[in-house]
Measured scan of single mutants.
Amino acid sequence: HTVDVQGVTYHFDNPEEARKFAEEMAKRLGLQVHVKDGRYKVE
Protein backbone atom coordinates (compact mmCIF):
# COMPACT_ATOMS: atom_id res chain seq x y z
CA HIS A 1 0.00 0.00 0.00
CA THR A 2 1.49 3.24 -1.16
CA VAL A 3 1.14 6.81 0.03
CA ASP A 4 2.59 9.63 -2.08
CA VAL A 5 3.18 12.85 -0.16
CA GLN A 6 4.32 15.70 -2.40
CA GLY A 7 6.47 13.43 -4.53
CA VAL A 8 7.79 11.28 -1.68
CA THR A 9 6.55 7.68 -1.61
CA TYR A 10 5.90 5.74 1.60
CA HIS A 11 5.10 2.01 1.68
CA PHE A 12 2.92 0.27 4.26
CA ASP A 13 2.08 -3.42 4.66
CA ASN A 14 -1.13 -2.56 6.46
CA PRO A 15 -3.84 -0.71 4.49
CA GLU A 16 -5.25 0.82 7.68
CA GLU A 17 -1.84 2.27 8.57
CA ALA A 18 -1.50 3.68 5.07
CA ARG A 19 -4.90 5.37 5.31
CA LYS A 20 -4.18 6.83 8.76
CA PHE A 21 -0.78 8.10 7.65
CA ALA A 22 -2.27 9.74 4.54
CA GLU A 23 -4.97 11.46 6.59
CA GLU A 24 -2.49 12.62 9.24
CA MET A 25 -0.07 14.04 6.66
CA ALA A 26 -2.88 15.78 4.77
CA LYS A 27 -4.10 17.38 8.00
CA ARG A 28 -0.60 18.47 8.98
CA LEU A 29 0.19 19.95 5.56
CA GLY A 30 -3.26 21.42 4.91
CA LEU A 31 -3.69 19.23 1.83
CA GLN A 32 -6.24 16.75 0.48
CA VAL A 33 -6.05 12.95 0.29
CA HIS A 34 -6.84 11.51 -3.14
CA VAL A 35 -7.04 7.81 -3.94
CA LYS A 36 -5.77 7.07 -7.42
CA ASP A 37 -5.11 3.60 -8.85
CA GLY A 38 -5.13 2.17 -5.33
CA ARG A 39 -2.51 4.65 -4.15
CA TYR A 40 -3.09 7.41 -1.66
CA LYS A 41 -1.91 10.78 -2.89
CA VAL A 42 -1.60 13.73 -0.54
CA GLU A 43 -1.64 16.93 -2.59
Rank of each mutant, 00 (worst) to 15 (best):
Leu29Gly: 03
Ala22Asp: 00
Thr2Gly: 08
Thr9Tyr: 10
Gln32Ser: 13
Lys20Pro: 03
Tyr10Ile: 05
Leu31Tyr: 08
Pro15Val: 10
Gln6His: 08
Thr9Ala: 10
His34Lys: 13
Val33Ser: 03
Phe12His: 03
Phe12Ala: 01
His1Arg: 10
Glu23Ser: 07
Glu24Tyr: 12
Asp4Met: 07
Thr9Glu: 14
Asp4Arg: 05
Lys41Phe: 15
Pro15Asn: 15
Glu43Asp: 13
Ala26Gly: 07
Phe21Ser: 02
Tyr10Trp: 10
Lys36Ile: 15
Gln6Asn: 09
Lys36His: 14
Pro15Tyr: 05
Ala22Leu: 00
Gly30Phe: 05
Asn14Arg: 11
Phe21Thr: 03
His34Asp: 06
Arg28Thr: 10
Glu17Gln: 11
Lys20Phe: 12
Lys27Phe: 12
Thr9Phe: 12
Phe12Arg: 01
Gly38Tyr: 03
Val35Trp: 14
His34Cys: 07
Val5Cys: 07
Val3Trp: 00
His11Tyr: 14
His11Cys: 07
Ala22Phe: 00
Gly7Asp: 08
Thr9His: 10
Lys36Glu: 15
Lys41Arg: 12
His1Lys: 10
Leu29Gln: 03
Gln32Leu: 08
Gly30Trp: 03
Asp37Met: 03
Lys20Ala: 13
His11Thr: 13
Val33Cys: 06
Val35Gln: 07
Pro15His: 14
Thr9Leu: 14
Glu24Met: 13
Lys27Trp: 09
Ala22Ser: 04
Glu17Leu: 11
Pro15Arg: 13
Val5Asn: 03
Ala18Tyr: 00
Glu43Phe: 08
Phe12Asn: 00
Leu29Ala: 03
Gln6Asp: 08
Ala18Asn: 00
Arg28Phe: 09
Asp4Tyr: 07
Arg28Lys: 14
Val8Cys: 06
Glu16Ile: 12
Asp37Trp: 03
Arg39Thr: 15
Tyr10Gln: 04
Ala22Ile: 01
Glu16His: 11
Thr9Asn: 08
Val5Met: 06
Val35Asp: 06
Val35Ile: 13
Val3Leu: 01
Arg39Gly: 15
Arg39Ile: 15
Glu43Ile: 07
Ala18Arg: 02
Lys20Tyr: 12
Asp13Cys: 06
Glu16Leu: 11
Lys36Gln: 14
Ala22Gln: 00
Val42His: 01
Arg19Cys: 07
Pro15Leu: 09
Thr9Pro: 09
Glu43Pro: 03
Lys20Leu: 14
His11Ile: 13
Val3Gly: 00
Val3Glu: 00
Glu24Asn: 09
Phe21Asn: 02
Arg39Glu: 15
Gly7Cys: 06
Lys20Trp: 11
Gln6Lys: 10
His11Gln: 13
Phe21Asp: 00
Asp13Ser: 12
Lys27Asn: 11
Gln32Lys: 14
Gly38Leu: 03
Asp4Trp: 12
Leu29Glu: 03
Gln32Val: 15
Lys20Asp: 12
His1Gln: 10
Tyr40Met: 03
Glu16Cys: 04
Arg39Ser: 15
Gln32Ala: 13
Lys41Tyr: 15
Val5Trp: 03
Glu16Gln: 11
Gly7Pro: 01
Asp13His: 11
Gly30His: 07
Glu43Ala: 07
Lys41Trp: 15
Glu16Met: 10
Arg39Leu: 15
Ala26Met: 02
Ala26Tyr: 01
Asp37Thr: 02
Ala22Tyr: 00
Met25Arg: 05
His11Trp: 12
Glu23Asp: 09
Asp4Cys: 08
Pro15Ser: 14
Val42Pro: 01
Glu23Phe: 15
Met25Gln: 12
Val33Gly: 01
Glu16Phe: 10
Val3Tyr: 00
Gln6Gly: 09
Val8Pro: 01
Lys36Pro: 01
Ala26Ile: 01
Lys27Glu: 14
His1Asp: 08
Pro15Trp: 07
Val42Lys: 01
Ala18Asp: 00
Gly7Gln: 06
His1Gly: 13
Gly38Thr: 04
Val35Phe: 15
Lys36Val: 15
Val42Trp: 02
His34Ala: 08
Phe12Gly: 00
Val35Glu: 14
Val33Phe: 06
His1Tyr: 14
Glu16Ala: 10
Tyr40Arg: 01
Glu43Thr: 08
Leu29Met: 06
Lys36Phe: 09
Phe21Arg: 02
Leu31Lys: 04
Val8Asp: 10
Arg19Ala: 08
Val42Ser: 02
Ala22Gly: 03
Leu31Ile: 04
Asn14Gln: 12
Met25Leu: 07
Glu23Lys: 06
His11Lys: 11
Glu43His: 07
Ala26Trp: 01
Glu43Met: 07
Asp37Val: 02
Gly30Leu: 04
Asn14Cys: 06
Gln6Leu: 15
Lys20Met: 14
Arg39Met: 15
Tyr40Ile: 06
Gly38His: 05
Gln32Cys: 07
Val3Gln: 00
Gln6Ile: 14
Val3Phe: 01
Asp13Met: 11
Leu29Cys: 05
Met25His: 07
Lys20Gly: 11
Arg19Thr: 05
Tyr10Cys: 04
Glu16Tyr: 10
Thr2Glu: 14
Gln32Gly: 06
Leu31Asn: 02
Asp13Val: 12
Lys41Cys: 06
Glu16Pro: 05
Arg19Lys: 13
Val5Gly: 03
His1Ala: 14
Tyr40Glu: 02
Asp13Tyr: 09
Leu31Val: 06
Glu43Val: 08
Val33Asp: 00
Arg19Asp: 04
Glu23His: 14
Val42Gln: 01
Asn14Tyr: 11
Ala18Gly: 05
His11Pro: 07
Val3Ser: 01
Val5Arg: 01
Gly30Gln: 06
Ala18His: 00
His11Glu: 13
Glu23Gln: 09
Val3Ile: 02
Ala26Pro: 00
Asp13Lys: 11
Met25Tyr: 06
Gln32Asn: 08
Pro15Cys: 09
Gly38Asp: 08
His11Gly: 08
Val35Lys: 06
Asp37Pro: 04
Leu31Glu: 03
Val42Ala: 02
Arg28Gly: 05
Arg19Tyr: 09
Gly7His: 07
Ala22Val: 02
Phe21Trp: 08
Val8Gly: 06
Glu17His: 11
Arg28Gln: 12
Lys36Ala: 13
Phe12Gln: 01
His1Pro: 12
Arg39Asp: 15
Gln32Met: 10
Glu17Tyr: 08
Lys41Gly: 05
Arg28Pro: 03
Val33Ile: 07
